[in-house]
Design a protein around this nucleic acid. Structure first.
Lengths: 174, 174
DNA sequence: CATAAATTAGTCAATCCTGACTATTCAATT
DNA sequence: AATTGAATAGTCAGGATTGACTAATTTATG
């Protein structure tokens, strides 16, 4: 349901056509989701059926290109947006870390190898963390966006610290 | 792919039938995934087709009940398990927090209301964090499982600290 | 003891998701 | 000017996922 909230929230700022919307999400909201293009189109269609958005054929269709469909929030859409937003803010929905699955079975490998593999993971994590210090979209500097980047930063730091703990525990035990 | 790793890892410890396996995962490995029952059965079927596990009709079928199918790891399954485990340990796969979506649009609400809603989220988070201090399965105390609980603990603490930061920033700004 | 409620075990139809594809336009290179 | 490569815009078939269901057995309750 957070996907609908995301789409409504973006369309609330300004109307867009499908492709544009997907690009925007995958560039500026990549921390929030990795929604795929066909999924975005599918959700837009469903939301149009619900009456939350209207599908407008492109205003001035440039005769040569196939006409694009522009999506625009309706009043019902605005109401749904606010409803979903309140629900989202008021609740905590747990996240799953698929990296944990490997840790659960880590004893299946000799500890030397396990440590070497986790060192690789650490490098990947460090790369992700460093990439955060260079914000690359102007949308990132304003509003809730900076809060999300701060969140991501704290999360990755915590991951790194925990990984160190894991590695050292494995080194000192069998 | 972490779902396959999870199922293989569990079946590696001992053979099980589908329902049992799903129960086990949702009880003792709830931190790792919330895999649904039909999905588990579907994956088991696919893995049987791959030759990673074998479907054995229940050894001594109690004449009255419909016979259950027991799943058992093959050698190919063991090899796949180790392969997937190494990949999982060596890489970092990012997690998405759908609570972030609401934060991204938090300016759509008056800051008073936003704070009140986030206080509710904080309560839910605190409940989740406190529940962690009471491990309820014996499987939790040994092996990688305690590492995962530690992970969860640190993650939730970070979430809580960040939420406090968010709330205070909203209070002091427009 | 009879009945209700819970647990066990699994299936299925409907929906959701996405890799791979089509097709046009724009930019750069030869 | 023709060719290549990238960006734009979207679609579709096939596979993944799950809410809701069936049905048997066990446990609890009056």
């Amino acid at each position: 349901m957070y996907r609908e909230l995301l789409l409504l929230g973006v369309l609330r700022q300004r109307q867009m056509h499908g492709y544009e919307l997907h690009e925007f999400i995958n560039r500026d909201l990549a921390f929030c989701t990795d929604i795929k293009k066909p999924t975005a189109y599918h959700l837009l269609q469903k939301m149009a059926e619900q009456g939350w958005i209207t599908e407008i054929p492109e205003p001035n269709p440039p005769t040569n290109r196939p006409p694009r469909t522009v999506y625009q929030l309706t009043e019902a859409g605005e109401a749904t947006f606010l409803d979903y937003l309140r629900q989202n803010l008021a609740t905590y929905s747990p996240s799953y870390f698929n990296g944990d699955v490997g840790i659960a079975f880590i004893e299946a490998l000799p500890s030397d190898e396990a440590c070497a593999l986790l060192e690789q993971r650490k490098i990947a994590l460090t790369v992700a963390l460093n990439a955060l210090h260079v914000p690359h979209g102007e949308a990132h500097t304003k509003g809730g966006m900076s809060l999300i980047i701060e969140h991501q930063k704290r999360h990755l730091s915590t991951e790194l610290a925990w990984l160190d703990e894991v590695i050292s525990r494995i080194r000192t035990q069998p």
